[in-house]
Amino acid sequence: MSLALLAAYVTAVGVLFPRRLARAAWTSHAPRLAAGTWLVTAVSVLSVALLAAAVLVTPLHTLGDAFVLLLQGCGWPPQLRAPSGPSEYAGLAIISWMVGSTVSSGYVVCRAARRERRRHRCDLHLLGEPAGTGVVVLDHPQPSVFCVPGDGGHIVLTRGALDVLSPAELVAVLAHERAHLSGRHHVIVLLPAILATAFPRMPLFTLALSEVRRLVELAADDKALRRATPATLVQAVLRLAAPASAQHPATGMFHATGTATTERVLRLVTPRPRRARLAMLSRLLVAVSFAATPLAAVALPAVTDLASHCTEITTSRPPAEVDRR
Protein backbone atom coordinates (compact mmCIF):
# COMPACT_ATOMS: atom_id res chain seq x y z
CA MET A 1 0.00 0.00 0.00
CA SER A 2 2.58 2.54 1.06
CA LEU A 3 4.85 1.33 -1.73
CA ALA A 4 2.12 2.01 -4.29
CA LEU A 5 1.55 5.47 -2.86
CA LEU A 6 5.24 6.34 -2.95
CA ALA A 7 5.60 5.02 -6.50
CA ALA A 8 2.57 7.06 -7.55
CA TYR A 9 4.16 10.16 -6.04
CA VAL A 10 7.41 9.57 -7.92
CA THR A 11 5.52 9.13 -11.20
CA ALA A 12 3.26 12.12 -10.73
CA VAL A 13 5.87 14.55 -9.46
CA GLY A 14 8.73 13.15 -11.53
CA VAL A 15 6.95 12.90 -14.87
CA LEU A 16 3.68 14.84 -14.99
CA PHE A 17 4.37 17.85 -12.78
CA PRO A 18 7.62 18.93 -14.51
CA ARG A 19 5.92 19.18 -17.92
CA ARG A 20 3.30 21.39 -16.35
CA LEU A 21 5.78 23.56 -14.48
CA ALA A 22 7.98 23.98 -17.56
CA ARG A 23 4.98 25.39 -19.45
CA ALA A 24 3.75 27.65 -16.65
CA ALA A 25 3.97 31.33 -17.49
CA TRP A 26 4.48 32.50 -13.91
CA THR A 27 7.98 31.03 -13.74
CA SER A 28 9.31 33.90 -15.89
CA HIS A 29 7.87 36.47 -13.51
CA ALA A 30 9.22 34.84 -10.35
CA PRO A 31 12.42 33.13 -11.51
CA ARG A 32 13.84 32.58 -8.05
CA LEU A 33 10.70 30.98 -6.68
CA ALA A 34 10.47 28.84 -9.80
CA ALA A 35 14.11 27.72 -9.58
CA GLY A 36 13.58 26.93 -5.91
CA THR A 37 10.52 24.87 -6.77
CA TRP A 38 12.51 22.87 -9.33
CA LEU A 39 15.31 22.15 -6.86
CA VAL A 40 12.97 21.24 -4.02
CA THR A 41 10.92 18.99 -6.29
CA ALA A 42 14.03 17.22 -7.55
CA VAL A 43 15.27 16.53 -4.02
CA SER A 44 11.80 15.46 -2.94
CA VAL A 45 11.38 12.93 -5.74
CA LEU A 46 14.85 11.55 -5.18
CA SER A 47 14.21 11.01 -1.49
CA VAL A 48 10.75 9.52 -2.00
CA ALA A 49 12.19 7.12 -4.58
CA LEU A 50 14.81 6.10 -2.03
CA LEU A 51 12.05 5.63 0.53
CA ALA A 52 10.07 3.46 -1.87
CA ALA A 53 13.08 1.23 -2.30
CA ALA A 54 13.57 1.15 1.46
CA VAL A 55 9.97 0.00 1.89
CA LEU A 56 10.89 -3.15 -0.03
CA VAL A 57 13.35 -3.90 2.73
CA THR A 58 11.26 -3.02 5.72
CA PRO A 59 7.75 -1.59 6.26
CA LEU A 60 7.38 2.16 6.31
CA HIS A 61 6.37 2.44 9.96
CA THR A 62 9.37 0.40 11.00
CA LEU A 63 11.52 2.70 8.95
CA GLY A 64 9.91 5.70 10.61
CA ASP A 65 10.44 4.19 14.05
CA ALA A 66 14.06 3.50 13.28
CA PHE A 67 14.48 7.06 12.06
CA VAL A 68 12.89 8.54 15.17
CA LEU A 69 14.81 6.22 17.49
CA LEU A 70 18.07 7.19 15.89
CA LEU A 71 17.16 10.85 16.23
CA GLN A 72 16.35 10.38 19.87
CA GLY A 73 19.51 8.52 20.56
CA CYS A 74 17.64 5.45 21.79
CA GLY A 75 20.41 3.37 20.26
CA TRP A 76 20.58 1.32 17.11
CA PRO A 77 17.01 0.23 16.35
CA PRO A 78 16.48 -3.51 16.67
CA GLN A 79 14.23 -3.62 13.57
CA LEU A 80 17.17 -3.30 11.20
CA ARG A 81 18.59 -6.72 10.52
CA ALA A 82 20.26 -8.66 7.74
CA PRO A 83 18.13 -8.99 4.58
CA SER A 84 16.29 -12.21 3.86
CA GLY A 85 14.14 -12.78 0.81
CA PRO A 86 14.23 -11.46 -2.76
CA SER A 87 12.32 -8.21 -2.21
CA GLU A 88 14.71 -7.11 0.51
CA TYR A 89 17.69 -7.76 -1.72
CA ALA A 90 15.96 -5.93 -4.56
CA GLY A 91 15.32 -2.95 -2.31
CA LEU A 92 18.93 -2.84 -1.16
CA ALA A 93 20.15 -3.15 -4.76
CA ILE A 94 17.95 -0.24 -5.88
CA ILE A 95 19.08 1.90 -2.97
CA SER A 96 22.74 1.26 -3.64
CA TRP A 97 22.25 1.87 -7.38
CA MET A 98 20.56 5.22 -6.74
CA VAL A 99 23.03 6.40 -4.13
CA GLY A 100 25.95 5.10 -6.18
CA SER A 101 24.99 6.81 -9.42
CA THR A 102 24.18 10.09 -7.66
CA VAL A 103 27.51 10.14 -5.87
CA SER A 104 29.53 9.07 -8.90
CA SER A 105 27.95 11.57 -11.28
CA GLY A 106 28.30 14.22 -8.63
CA TYR A 107 31.99 13.49 -8.56
CA VAL A 108 32.33 13.43 -12.35
CA VAL A 109 30.28 16.59 -12.98
CA CYS A 110 31.96 18.63 -10.25
CA ARG A 111 35.44 17.55 -11.24
CA ALA A 112 34.84 18.35 -14.93
CA ALA A 113 33.51 21.81 -14.13
CA ARG A 114 36.32 22.55 -11.71
CA ARG A 115 38.97 21.41 -14.16
CA GLU A 116 37.53 23.43 -16.99
CA ARG A 117 37.35 26.52 -14.80
CA ARG A 118 40.92 26.05 -13.64
CA ARG A 119 42.10 25.83 -17.24
CA HIS A 120 40.19 28.99 -18.15
CA ARG A 121 41.58 30.82 -15.14
CA CYS A 122 45.11 29.83 -16.12
CA ASP A 123 44.55 31.00 -19.71
CA LEU A 124 43.02 34.25 -18.49
CA HIS A 125 45.92 34.87 -16.20
CA LEU A 126 48.39 34.74 -19.05
CA LEU A 127 46.26 36.20 -21.84
CA GLY A 128 43.90 38.63 -20.17
CA GLU A 129 44.43 42.22 -19.21
CA PRO A 130 43.10 43.00 -15.75
CA ALA A 131 40.59 45.87 -15.86
CA GLY A 132 39.17 46.65 -12.46
CA THR A 133 38.37 44.21 -9.69
CA GLY A 134 37.52 40.79 -11.02
CA VAL A 135 37.21 42.01 -14.61
CA VAL A 136 39.53 40.80 -17.36
CA VAL A 137 39.71 41.93 -20.98
CA LEU A 138 40.62 39.46 -23.72
CA ASP A 139 42.01 40.82 -26.95
CA HIS A 140 39.59 39.15 -29.35
CA PRO A 141 37.34 40.75 -31.98
CA GLN A 142 34.19 38.70 -31.33
CA PRO A 143 31.86 40.49 -28.88
CA SER A 144 31.37 38.17 -25.94
CA VAL A 145 30.94 38.41 -22.18
CA PHE A 146 31.06 35.55 -19.70
CA CYS A 147 32.09 34.84 -16.17
CA VAL A 148 34.30 32.15 -14.70
CA PRO A 149 33.11 31.31 -11.18
CA GLY A 150 35.39 30.04 -8.48
CA ASP A 151 38.49 31.61 -6.89
CA GLY A 152 36.63 34.87 -6.34
CA GLY A 153 35.10 34.78 -9.80
CA HIS A 154 36.20 36.61 -12.92
CA ILE A 155 34.13 38.49 -15.48
CA VAL A 156 35.62 38.32 -18.95
CA LEU A 157 34.96 40.90 -21.65
CA THR A 158 36.39 40.64 -25.13
CA ARG A 159 37.80 43.68 -26.90
CA GLY A 160 34.95 43.17 -29.38
CA ALA A 161 32.38 43.49 -26.60
CA LEU A 162 34.00 46.70 -25.34
CA ASP A 163 33.84 48.07 -28.87
CA VAL A 164 30.11 47.48 -29.35
CA LEU A 165 28.79 48.32 -25.85
CA SER A 166 28.04 51.85 -24.67
CA PRO A 167 29.11 52.70 -21.10
CA ALA A 168 25.54 52.30 -19.79
CA GLU A 169 25.17 48.94 -21.53
CA LEU A 170 28.49 47.85 -20.09
CA VAL A 171 27.20 48.65 -16.60
CA ALA A 172 24.12 46.52 -17.28
CA VAL A 173 26.17 43.59 -18.58
CA LEU A 174 28.57 43.71 -15.64
CA ALA A 175 25.66 43.87 -13.19
CA HIS A 176 24.18 40.77 -14.83
CA GLU A 177 27.43 38.83 -14.56
CA ARG A 178 28.04 40.01 -10.98
CA ALA A 179 24.57 38.73 -10.12
CA HIS A 180 25.61 35.30 -11.44
CA LEU A 181 28.72 35.33 -9.28
CA SER A 182 27.19 36.73 -6.10
CA GLY A 183 24.11 34.52 -6.46
CA ARG A 184 26.36 31.45 -6.84
CA HIS A 185 24.34 30.44 -9.87
CA HIS A 186 26.95 27.89 -10.93
CA VAL A 187 26.30 26.00 -7.69
CA ILE A 188 22.53 26.19 -8.13
CA VAL A 189 22.79 24.68 -11.60
CA LEU A 190 25.03 21.92 -10.28
CA LEU A 191 22.33 19.96 -8.43
CA PRO A 192 19.99 19.40 -11.41
CA ALA A 193 23.07 18.80 -13.58
CA ILE A 194 24.22 16.00 -11.30
CA LEU A 195 20.77 14.42 -11.11
CA ALA A 196 20.23 14.72 -14.87
CA THR A 197 23.57 12.98 -15.43
CA ALA A 198 22.76 10.26 -12.91
CA PHE A 199 19.19 9.63 -14.12
CA PRO A 200 18.98 10.90 -17.71
CA ARG A 201 15.60 9.26 -18.31
CA MET A 202 13.83 11.12 -15.54
CA PRO A 203 11.93 14.02 -17.16
CA LEU A 204 11.98 15.98 -13.90
CA PHE A 205 15.76 16.10 -13.72
CA THR A 206 16.44 16.90 -17.38
CA LEU A 207 13.75 19.58 -17.45
CA ALA A 208 14.96 20.96 -14.13
CA LEU A 209 18.44 21.41 -15.61
CA SER A 210 17.30 23.35 -18.69
CA GLU A 211 14.74 25.34 -16.71
CA VAL A 212 17.07 26.29 -13.88
CA ARG A 213 19.65 27.42 -16.43
CA ARG A 214 17.03 29.63 -18.07
CA LEU A 215 15.73 30.91 -14.74
CA VAL A 216 19.13 31.97 -13.36
CA GLU A 217 19.56 34.14 -16.47
CA LEU A 218 16.22 35.80 -15.74
CA ALA A 219 17.14 36.25 -12.07
CA ALA A 220 20.44 37.88 -13.09
CA ASP A 221 18.53 40.15 -15.49
CA ASP A 222 16.22 41.19 -12.66
CA LYS A 223 19.18 42.10 -10.52
CA ALA A 224 20.84 43.97 -13.39
CA LEU A 225 17.68 46.07 -13.73
CA ARG A 226 18.53 47.72 -10.43
CA ARG A 227 21.47 49.38 -12.14
CA ALA A 228 20.14 49.80 -15.67
CA THR A 229 16.89 50.43 -17.51
CA PRO A 230 15.22 47.55 -19.36
CA ALA A 231 15.87 49.32 -22.68
CA THR A 232 19.61 49.46 -21.97
CA LEU A 233 19.77 45.81 -20.99
CA VAL A 234 17.81 44.80 -24.10
CA GLN A 235 20.17 46.83 -26.25
CA ALA A 236 23.16 45.11 -24.63
CA VAL A 237 21.67 41.67 -25.24
CA LEU A 238 21.01 42.55 -28.87
CA ARG A 239 24.54 43.80 -29.42
CA LEU A 240 26.14 40.70 -27.94
CA ALA A 241 23.70 38.23 -29.52
CA ALA A 242 24.11 39.67 -33.00
CA PRO A 243 25.00 36.97 -35.51
CA ALA A 244 28.60 36.87 -36.66
CA SER A 245 29.37 39.25 -39.49
CA ALA A 246 32.23 39.49 -41.95
CA GLN A 247 33.97 41.74 -39.43
CA HIS A 248 34.17 39.10 -36.76
CA PRO A 249 33.44 35.67 -38.18
CA ALA A 250 31.91 33.15 -35.82
CA THR A 251 34.39 31.45 -33.57
CA GLY A 252 31.81 29.23 -31.95
CA MET A 253 28.63 27.73 -33.23
CA PHE A 254 25.03 28.73 -32.90
CA HIS A 255 23.41 27.41 -29.83
CA ALA A 256 19.92 26.12 -29.46
CA THR A 257 19.20 29.01 -27.12
CA GLY A 258 17.78 31.44 -29.64
CA THR A 259 14.21 30.97 -28.46
CA ALA A 260 15.25 31.40 -24.86
CA THR A 261 17.04 34.65 -25.75
CA THR A 262 13.97 35.89 -27.62
CA GLU A 263 11.77 35.18 -24.61
CA ARG A 264 14.30 36.78 -22.29
CA VAL A 265 14.32 39.99 -24.33
CA LEU A 266 10.55 40.16 -24.79
CA ARG A 267 10.12 39.67 -21.05
CA LEU A 268 12.25 42.78 -20.47
CA VAL A 269 10.15 44.98 -22.73
CA THR A 270 6.75 43.65 -21.66
CA PRO A 271 5.18 45.37 -18.68
CA ARG A 272 5.29 43.17 -15.58
CA PRO A 273 1.99 41.71 -14.50
CA ARG A 274 1.03 42.91 -11.06
CA ARG A 275 2.22 40.44 -8.49
CA ALA A 276 -0.73 38.45 -7.35
CA ARG A 277 0.33 37.74 -3.79
CA LEU A 278 -2.17 34.98 -3.22
CA ALA A 279 -1.04 33.11 -6.33
CA MET A 280 2.63 33.42 -5.32
CA LEU A 281 1.82 32.26 -1.82
CA SER A 282 0.04 29.19 -3.14
CA ARG A 283 3.05 28.39 -5.34
CA LEU A 284 5.31 28.75 -2.35
CA LEU A 285 3.07 26.34 -0.47
CA VAL A 286 3.31 23.84 -3.32
CA ALA A 287 7.11 24.00 -3.08
CA VAL A 288 7.02 23.62 0.70
CA SER A 289 4.69 20.65 0.48
CA PHE A 290 7.07 18.93 -1.93
CA ALA A 291 9.85 19.49 0.54
CA ALA A 292 7.72 18.16 3.39
CA THR A 293 6.40 15.03 1.68
CA PRO A 294 9.33 12.65 2.15
CA LEU A 295 9.77 13.72 5.74
CA ALA A 296 6.07 13.30 6.43
CA ALA A 297 6.03 9.90 4.75
CA VAL A 298 8.61 8.70 7.22
CA ALA A 299 7.45 10.59 10.24
CA LEU A 300 3.66 10.17 10.14
CA PRO A 301 3.41 6.40 10.59
CA ALA A 302 6.12 6.60 13.17
CA VAL A 303 4.53 9.35 15.18
CA THR A 304 1.30 7.37 15.46
CA ASP A 305 2.92 4.62 17.46
CA LEU A 306 5.99 6.44 18.63
CA ALA A 307 4.96 6.67 22.25
CA SER A 308 4.37 2.96 22.79
CA HIS A 309 7.48 1.82 20.96
CA CYS A 310 9.98 4.18 22.42
CA THR A 311 8.80 3.70 25.98
CA GLU A 312 8.91 -0.08 25.51
CA ILE A 313 12.49 0.01 24.35
CA THR A 314 13.82 2.63 26.73
CA THR A 315 12.28 1.56 29.97
CA SER A 316 15.33 2.79 31.81
CA ARG A 317 14.58 6.36 30.83
CA PRO A 318 11.95 8.35 32.63
CA PRO A 319 8.93 8.67 30.34
CA ALA A 320 8.74 12.43 30.90
CA GLU A 321 12.04 12.91 29.12
CA VAL A 322 10.91 10.90 26.16
CA ASP A 323 7.69 12.89 25.92
CA ARG A 324 9.50 16.17 26.00
CA ARG A 325 11.57 15.24 23.00
Binding site: E116, H120, V145, A241, A250, M253
Partner: peptide, 26 residues
Protein backbone atom coordinates in the same frame (compact mmCIF):
# COMPACT_ATOMS: atom_id res chain seq x y z
CA UNK B 1 43.31 33.93 -27.42
CA UNK B 2 41.52 32.56 -30.47
CA UNK B 3 41.93 29.05 -29.12
CA UNK B 4 40.56 30.01 -25.75
CA UNK B 5 37.56 31.75 -27.31
CA UNK B 6 36.84 28.72 -29.48
CA UNK B 7 36.96 26.67 -26.33
CA UNK B 8 34.69 29.06 -24.45
CA UNK B 9 32.13 29.39 -27.24
CA UNK B 10 32.05 25.80 -28.41
CA UNK B 11 29.07 23.68 -27.53
CA UNK B 12 29.59 21.02 -24.94
CA UNK B 13 27.13 19.25 -22.70
CA UNK B 14 28.56 20.89 -19.62
CA UNK B 15 27.77 24.40 -20.76
CA UNK B 16 26.57 26.54 -17.93
CA UNK B 17 28.49 24.56 -15.36
CA UNK B 18 32.00 25.83 -15.89
CA UNK B 19 31.09 29.21 -17.35
CA UNK B 20 28.06 31.46 -17.47
CA UNK B 21 27.64 33.40 -20.69
CA UNK B 22 25.86 36.72 -20.86
CA UNK B 23 24.12 35.64 -24.05
CA UNK B 24 24.87 33.24 -26.89
CA UNK B 25 25.14 34.33 -30.50
CA UNK B 26 21.83 33.93 -32.27
Amino acid sequence: TARMMRDVLSTTDDRGLALLHFVDTM
